[in-house]
Nucleic acid binder design. Structure first.
Lengths: 228, 228
DNA sequence: CGGGTACTTGACAATGGTCAAGTGTGGTGG
DNA sequence: CCACCACACTTGACCATTGTCAAGTACCCG
């Protein structure tokens, strides 16, 4: 498959004229990563941004003690690192592959030119940044106003939405990573999973989780308080 | 002062040709608010966005129990509610005036046209959204990876930067609002202020705070652990 | 001077983190 | 094919930070 075919499929470039896509494919650079490799680090000069072709990437912050908070997990087709390019500074977080991944890199300058000339590309970019903001709005809300069990319940229901068998979800990331995504640590996540299981809300088998009581989970996620 | 003079001064519209500014001033609508009034609520249709002319506005989330988390406090000249316009949906949070405020409102459609035609305006908008993202990145980091005293220390040092007398800062918001901005509650904030005072780091008199030991505050903010 | 609001303080509870010791599992090499 | 190692995950005991509830103080504004 040619790189130009990939690029055509990327939402960011939806609605662009063929001619433009060709131009974009010319300035794109390919890179491959193994699992667990660093794409960029916090503080690195943001001289371009990335689009994920295949694999998965986590964007995260680190505390001085080494605790990590995942800000975002990106799947194929999604751009990342764009904001730093427009703010014109350094990357504000780390990017690391969760599995073998392929990315394309767009050098800053050329892309800026492109975007100045193409209103449709610009509108796409504005929409993407806006959705990112909305995502963070929710993340802040969750971290600040909700408890871990509420966040977990919401996450399980969210996973379940994109399933054909909605009561059988499977975590696509390690539990440790899920903990970091939910703003907690593996021990706490583990405990809450067992508690939910003992309450009969879910049934856990490794990375497979059965949702036994969706109503209870929904109530939990939306902030209803339970005894016990 | 004419509205067109205000608009000329707004960073978002920096670098725009006179002609464009005139056009913008035509689609702008004025509105005034008293202290404590709601500009928009979470879930409201985002059929336009705002620029603050004077006063101060808080953007915040509410938990079901009524706890609030402030996402942002905007001062005059800053746009707010833009992201929701580009994402094309509803506002994801509440906006309420902290004091008597004047805003201008830009209806969605007209502004979208404008932005499609003017690359310079677009680049400004991209830069602003990117800075917002960066802001949230930091907020998430703080809420998830730092303790309240660390956040408070960082906030005091931040206040101190824009002062000519850097060791005499004055809170420009109520302590209760500061608590909500730092992701905590008034009681906790109060306790931490007293503790810092008893440690000799600061001296508190109402809303005026003297920074007595900047080094200690810096160490705190950057995550050094202290005994006691 | 009075009343409302902001703020403080105390006693208590709970959520969630730390540290330490397991259990389990998958993959590699002997 | 099995043994072992690394790594993910779990569980327990403990503790720290922070939130809850309640009461009291200070302060501003009319």
């Amino acid at each position: 498959m040619e790189i130009i075919d990939f690029i055509t499929e990327i939402p960011l470039f939806k609605g662009l004229p063929e001619r433009q896509i060709v131009e974009i494919s010319k300035i794109a650079l390919n890179r491959s990563f193994n699992r667990g490799q660093t794409v960029f680090s916090e503080g690195d000069e943001a001289n371009g941004f990335y689009v994920l072709l295949s694999g998965r990437i986590k964007i995260f912050k680190l505390s001085p003690e080494g605790t990590e908070q995942i800000l975002h997990i990106f799947e194929s087709g999604e751009p990342f690192g764009e904001a730093a390019v427009f703010a014109g500074e350094t990357f504000p977080a780390y990017a690391e592959t969760l599995e073998e991944s392929e990315v394309i890199f767009f050098p800053r300058k050329v892309f800026m030119e492109l975007i100045k000339r193409d209103p449709s590309l610009t509108m796409n970019m504005l929409a993407i940044l806006s959705l990112r903001l909305k995502h963070f709005t929710r993340l802040v809300e969750d971290l600040s106003l909700k408890e871990v069990s509420q966040r977990l319940a919401a996450y399980l229901l969210y996973l379940s939405k994109s399933k054909d068998e909605p009561n059988n979800v499977e975590l696509e990331i390690l539990k440790g990573q899920l903990a970091s995504l939910l703003g907690t640590i593996p021990e706490t996540l583990s405990r809450i999973l067992s508690k939910m299981a003992s309450q009969g809300f879910i049934q856990v088998q490794g990375r497979k989780i059965k949702l036994l009581d969706r109503k209870a989970l929904k109530d939990l996620a939306s902030g209803e308080k339970f005894l016990q």
